[in-house]
Each structure stands twice: as C-alpha cells, then as structure tokens.
Design a protein around this nucleic acid. Structure first.
Lengths: 208, 208
DNA sequence: AATTAGATCTCGACT
DNA sequence: AGTCGAGGTCTAATT
C-alpha cells in the first residue's frame, strides 16, 4: 500500500518519521516494513516476525512479544493493491459474478474488478432496488478484509453517482471477530459455499 | 509488481532463485529489490543505486557500473499497480478524458481507469471507426511508460471483444528513446499541452 | 575516494 | 535459548 503516513517506533531505539508518502508492506508472516521511494536494501522502519498488526481506523499498530511498538498514522491512501488472489479466491469471484443472485433476488452484476483510486473492488452489483453494492471476496474472512472493504466503501460513497453503496463481505468462512466488526459497520456478511457454487457453474458445459 | 519470476544475480557472488511468486520493487532512484512474502528487513536480491533497469519483453536486466548484473525472468504478472500519479498526472488524465477529441476527430471516451488484471489503464477510448484505443498518460514520457503500455496492450489484445487495441502514449514531454521504442511497437505518441488543455477546460465554470 | 565503526544490524549455524 | 561469525553486509561519519 502506498500512503501518506507518519511513523513512530519505540523499542530498541525510538524514532519518528514525519508525514510523507511511503510504501507499506504487510507480508504473510505478519511482518511490516516501511519503505521510502529510494534505496533497495533497507526499510525506513520495520517489525520482524513474530509480530502482530492491529488496524484501528487510520492507525496501524504493530507490536511484538518484546514490547517493541510501531505506530503508523495514515493520512491518505494512494494505492492499495490488496492481497494477491489465490486460485480459489479468483474462482470464487468468477462463480459469484456468474451467479450474482447468490447475493439476493433481483441482484445484477455491474462489473468485476471495479476500479477505485486505491485499487479494484472485487465485485460491484446492484440490488433489486437499483442500489449500489460493493462485494469483497475472501477465502477466509478476517478483520483485515473488513477494513479493506470499509476503505473502499468510504471512497465509493463519496461518488454521488454511486452513493449510497452497501457493503457485502463474502467468504467461505467468516471469523466471529470479523463478522462482529462488519455488522457493526453495517456491512452484510455472506458465507459462500464453494462446492455449491461450483455445482451450479454452467461454464464447463458451454463452448464459449 | 507481484509476479512469478526467477532471478539470477552475478556480481560479488552468484545466486539463483527458482521460479516463484515474488514482489518486485522499482524505486525512483532506479534501484530494484526482490522480496519474498515473508521477512520485513532483507530482500532476496537487490541492486543498489546507481544502477540501470533494461526491460526486454519478459526479461528485466539490472546492471551497475561495477558490472554486477541481476536478471529477472518474468513468467506471469499478478499485480502491477504502476506509478503513483502525482497531481499533474491526475489532472492531465481528467483533462484528456474531458477533451477526448484531442486524440483525434470522432474519438469517444469509454472510461478512465479501465481495469485489467495487472492494473488500470489510464484511459480507454474508441476511435472514429469504433476501434479500441488504450491511452497511457505520463508527465514525462520515458521508456518505462512505453513498457507499461505494451504490457497492457498485450493483455487487452487477448480479449476478443476489444481486440485489436491501438496504443497511445501521451505525455507533456516524450524522450526521444521512448518515442523510438513506442513507434517501433506501433504505439502512437501524443505530446500533451497542459496549458492548452487547461485553457479549454470548462469544469471551472460549471456548478457541478 | 578510502577507512572505520555502528546497526532496531540480520541471518544462519552450532552449542 | 544463547552465542558466535559472516554478510553481495549496509550506512553514515570521518580522514
């Protein structure tokens, strides 16, 4: 993710980075690093695994067992490419787009990979009443997915041609904490049945 | 950019990374680093500035004065967020979208930020004959912008609903090397006059 | 330009 | 878990 942010580290030393545009990397082991737009080798700040990232609105806090703490305050997000979809996640998106009524009667597909300034929304749809619906799809629904969808909704709802935009968090399994957070924010949770969606998949019988 | 790639380094030592999914960072000082999806601190491979990146199709070669060489062979691109637009570049896109006939008589706008699997194309348009046109916009047109547009065109031309897609490389200034490369690949170069586009901008006189 | 000491060193190997 | 030594060390300061 590329964002204007300021960073404070307190641990083996204390340091402060003033507000500026930087690259934030969150890797699959939970590690976080902050890069400037130069230098190949060393990040400006980092937290090595094992460590844990807590996202609270525009504040990211990364902590480890030893009490080291990295606090990132985000002012503006320029790009947020998000997770790289694995095969299952990509297939879930295809299947849900193809069977968009899984979201509810009368739903229609607007488009997959709907572009926003910070990255594409998995699926944009319209409900029976013509209202906009943004769908975030995950294999396992966790809090970071809810946070991502929240950021998309915040942005999409600024567009008077789309607003109000309803959010749907769709995943094969949704963690209780993620469900609570989503519902607290008015985001609907939808558990996807991969096998059932595959079962009603007609693409394999079509020539084109 | 996130891609499946293999990497060979020859310099102070020689090393080889087998084909796998990795994160490639190209920073504004020309430095290149290759990260795995774990570890916050150290890249798998890197080239510190000053060094130079030459993109030749799916092969990236990074070299420095000392004769060190990093060769990256790309098999598949999963994500390519591209450069973060600065204010001028974002405004150029708005202005060109608004005055799409700058591209030629009879041109019509399809959409800004047209999504593809590797990232959004700045502008998609149709020419007078209804043919698809992909436009990449830059402040300064350099070789990397031509390479980016080439990758988009390669992808877009696989879509039978769009193909054939013509490419237009639009910038305030286009470097001779970039122009030569673009024209060699059948990409049209268009020099944008920011002030002239602003002059015909009507948005500031409208209420909405 | 060359040298030297420090690093949130990191990273791996070995006890 | 601690200790040791190397690293494409890198990085900044000093000579």
């Amino acid at each position: 993710m590329i964002a204007r942010c300021q960073v404070d580290y307190a641990g083996r030393l204390t340091s402060h980075l003033p507000m500026a545009t930087r690259l934030l990397l969150v890797k699959s082991d939970g590690s976080v690093s902050i890069h400037s737009d130069d230098r190949a080798y060393k990040p400006l700040n980092w937290m090595s695994p094992p460590c844990w990232l807590i996202v609270d609105g525009k504040t990211w806090i990364v902590e480890n067992k030893g009490g080291e703490k990295l606090v990132i305050s985000i002012a503006e997000i320029f790009q947020e490419p998000g997770l790289v979809k694995d095969g299952v996640e990509a297939h879930l998106q295809e299947l849900l787009a193809e069977h968009i009524v899984t979201l509810g009667d009368g739903y229609t597909l607007v488009r997959r990979e709907f572009p926003t300034a910070i990255g594409p929304v998995d699926i944009m749809a319209r409900d029976a009443g013509g209202g906009s619906v943004a769908v975030e799809i995950k294999r396992r629904g966790e809090i970071d997915g809810v946070e991502q969808l929240t950021r998309y909704l915040e942005l999409l709802n600024r567009d008077p041609l789309l607003a109000p935009v309803q959010g749907v968090f769709a995943a094969q399994q949704i963690k209780p904490q993620a469900r609570t957070l989503a519902e607290d924010r008015g985001i609907r949770c939808l558990t996807l049945d991969y096998d059932a969606l595959r079962g009603i998949d007609t693409s394999e019988f079509r020539l084109f």
